[in-house]
Design a protein around this nucleic acid. Structure first.
Lengths: 343, 343
DNA sequence: TTGTATGCGTTATCAC
DNA sequence: GTGATAACGCATACAA
């Protein structure tokens, strides 16, 4: 490790047994390089850690990035997409949108999409990522930004999220201030990062108010309507004294499910049951009653993620791997003081 | 025009003053061709009308298509996107998603996106297209499929839609069969194709039932919540005898707006006011009450559009330029017989 | 064989 | 000069 002055194209070329021009072509993503040659050269470039455009100068080779979402079945995803699309379009970049399908047992192979689409980077939304996938991307020189990652990325991967813990606290404190004491929480899947943060915020708020958290009142379900409906129905079926007077749902869609569970149980929102959501989707204000919720700036998160990715592609260093945008309580008409204790 | 046997690469190459290989590269979208050369060769290819891959054999040059939507702010768009994404992914094609922005006075320049992204085709959703834009795409050899076009494409452009007229009839007949006579309709913007078809279906249904259509009860507004809310509020503010007992909205989002207008007017759905929507978005069954609506197979429309585009790219001839998928009435709980005539 | 596609080197050129 | 890129032709492989 001494005579490594600075690797030049010529050196790489000789080792790979090709002309310098061919190495240049690999670097610039040209089409006229055989896949096998490209791979060999990529390997050598990495080995000599050649100062690639991409973490050196600029690398907008294709003008495309991949946006990979865990699901394409919720307004949630659309908000993210809007943000990413807006920011990309602003810079003349195209966003290739895909959905990862987790039906399969094996981890989904989204990591090959950038190669397939000749895109320069990936924004991965609410998905799990293995170390192997990360390495694979790095080797291919594909930039990566995560939005709301399911598992905590260990190294310095760029990720964008929201202040879920603070949001969980704000929602719970709002309900406490209205006089609620039996406050239920419906989280997303238990093992997901943002669920844990929100539940912790909820617990802390209860704690600070001197209200003991009741394990019975914390339930986990998927983020969709069904999850909220099923968990809310269980909660509302509890005997009178143990039934919650308020439900804090992990998503607006869960909150809609809770609305329906309340309706079927003959309970009015908010007179008999207060409901708070999470996300602040556009439709919140059009529900009956309009939903009190914790705003998560999803579109902005998409924008920031895209901007971060483009900065990485321009070779700018990451100021911070993790960006958390602030949540904000939006009080509408689905929360009210609890009903007086019945006999 | 006699000795035109069949143009070969060599001929084009000689006229352009380049090697046959270079012409081949132009045809295959390779990167190592100078812009000026490419243009010259493109011109000669067109002049000799060389049987291009693209309308000849196969033209999946880039493995990308553009999906251009008029708005990215509704669950409607997401349904279309899901269908397009699913079908494209099935074929290893990437979908570059963009939103056209019509804020500007001049027509939006989506027609340049395929060139920018090096994509081979465009799916254009609910947008207006000028003849000039069509010509521009054709010259560039970009395939085109429309979903729910705003204006009727004159020539044989592929387009996918739904049986809007039949849907309008089905919704209206359902309300008539419940006993409603004063049935209002809230359409989308008046000049849009599908609005016209739905209104005509509505008129025909009334006509066949011997109910005279009341011009006062037909209103137009944008397809979003606001449009439905504003128009419904006007309708519900009519004096008692002229007020409708049912509203047929042009979209589910408009129907949600009508729900809110009813709530604010102190009317219950469906006891005091029946509401029918259009689209059958996933959230319909989670509204309170679940919304009776006309199902439009949006995801399927997206799939078909993508499949059609890929067929065009494969050089297969269009069987029919226009495909209309059938609509279907979904009766849920937002419709009921009209309230008895008050004093 | 003729036509087309692909991968690579060559050469000119540009930036420092 | 030196390092890198751009655009072309050549050689080959493959196809009808």
């Amino acid at each position: 490790m001494s005579e490594r002055a600075r690797p030049t194209l010529a050196v790489i070329a000789e080792e790979a047994g090709v002309s310098p021009a061919t190495v240049s072509k690999v670097l610039n993503g040209r089409t006229d390089v055989a896949p096998s040659t490209r791979e060999r050269v990529e390997g050598l470039l990495h080995e000599h850690n050649y100062p690639r455009p991409g973490h050196g100068r600029r690398a907008r080779r294709s003008g495309l990035v991949d946006l990979v979402l865990a699901g394409l079945d919720s307004p949630w995803a659309m908000e993210i997409l809007r943000g990413v699309e807006a920011e990309c379009t602003l810079h003349g970049i195209g966003a290739v949108v895909s959905q990862v399908r987790e039906d399969d047992a094996r981890p989904p192979s989204w990591q090959n999409l950038p190669a397939l689409h000749h895109s320069d980077g990936v924004i991965l939304v609410t998905s799990r990522m293995t170390e192997r996938q990360r390495e694979q991307l790095e080797r291919a020189g594909v930039a990566l930004v995560l939005i709301d990652p399911v598992n905590l990325p260990d190294s310095g991967i760029a990720s964008v999220g929201a202040t879920n813990w603070a949001g969980g606290m704000a929602a719970t404190e709002h309900l406490l201030s209205l006089g609620h004491r039996r406050i239920a929480m419906i989280g997303g899947p238990a093992d997901i990062l943002c669920t844990q943060a929100r539940v912790d915020g909820y617990r802390t708020a209860l704690d600070r108010a001197g209200v003991e958290a009741d394990r019975e009142l914390i339930r986990y379900g998927d983020f969709h309507h069904e999850g909220g409906f099923a968990r809310a129905r269980e909660l509302l079926a509890l005997p009178a004294g143990r039934r919650p007077t308020a439900i804090f749902a992990g998503s607006d869609q869960q909150a809609m499910g809770a609305y329906e569970a309340a309706r079927q149980a003959g309970l009015r929102v908010p007179e008999d049951l207060s409901v708070v959501g999470f996300d602040d989707l556009p439709l919140c204000e059009w529900l009956s009653p309009p939903l009190t919720t914790v705003r998560q700036p999803l579109e902005e998160m998409g924008r920031i993620a895209a901007r971060t990715l483009l900065q990485l592609l321009d070779g700018q260093p990451l100021l911070t791997p993790r960006i958390e945008l602030s949540t904000q309580l939006r009080v509408r008409h689905s929360t009210a003081p609890p009903p007086p204790e019945g006999p």
